[in-house]
Design a protein around this nucleic acid. Structure first.
Lengths: 149, 149
DNA sequence: GTTTAACTGTTCAACTGTTTAACTATTAAC
DNA sequence: GTTAATAGTTAAACAGTTGAACAGTTAAAC
């Protein structure tokens, strides 16, 4: 592959990744709605899968400062979606869990997103989309390494 | 492919797309810096490639309301990166172009991003990454259709 | 055992990006 | 010539972010 070919690939990647990111976000916003922002949905998703977690953990996973997590959690806490519980052994730590309401809202939104993504995926050849996701996951790992230090 | 397989694929896609999005953003932020946010960089990129453009055009491309564009352009205009020029024939229209400073800043940042993306891409098999980008572009088109109406 | 250091989380000010709704100015339609 | 549509702006309100300073808690050093 020539230098020019690689340059073109890089150009195409930069353009398409930005475009897909924006379009996917607005598709979710328009078709899901659900009173949850994207970030809020993914926060609920993470806490739901983890069962419970801490602010520091979220800050690490989402790669933002802890104060950003505090602000986000507070907004969801005000809406009654998330519970804060202090650890009795180490009283610095606050565990975050979903409330009933938070869980319901999450499950509903998750189902809609699932259907949306499935309808997108079904428009592709199965082998193609499978390969795509595998490469995407490799990229995720490479990015983890690059970000690590 | 079974229903379960599809469900798993959907799960994996949702997880990996969110993860890559966050990691890529923070990698760019940490390694590029350059006083430009992601959105600002892509705005400069679009105007640079178009030569000149209007707020309405940017609103359409980025899929946000025009007032969001006004705010963003104003911030960059205050930094001396963008010029506003009224159309003499249709005085409602304002053309946006890069200033010298805006262009310099853009070119510098673009070069760094290019190198960054190239270093990522080079860690993949060439056929694999080429196929990946092609599928990514297909997905972009599918999203355009889905968002269209 | 007390002091010091490290850690968890919060608050506050400042910023970017976003939407909605009301508005100005200009052009097009009839 | 009045009415519609169009291009862009303004202002209020919100989500998400950083950075710096802070409180409270635990661990380490001595």
């Amino acid at each position: 592959m020539s230098v020019q070919d690689i340059k073109d690939l890089v150009d195409r990647y930069i353009a398409v990744s930005f475009s897909v990111e924006k379009k996917a976000a607005s598709l979710v916003k328009n078709q899901i709605g659900s009173d949850l922002t994207n970030d809020q949905h993914f926060t609920l998703r993470y806490i739901n899968q983890a069962g419970s977690c801490t602010s520091s953990e979220l800050a690490e996973v989402f790669d933002v400062k802890k104060s950003a997590i505090t602000a986000m959690i507070t907004r969801m806490w005000e809406k009654g979606l998330i519970q804060r519980t202090r650890d009795e052994n180490d009283r610095r730590v606050v565990y975050l869990t979903l409330t009933e309401k938070g869980n319901e809202l999450y499950v509903k939104a998750e189902e809609k997103i699932h259907n949306l993504v499935e309808s997108l995926i079904n428009r592709f050849d199965q082998a193609e989309i499978q390969q795509f996701i595998e490469t995407f996951e490799k990229l995720d790992k490479v990015l983890s390494q690059s970000n690590g230090q």
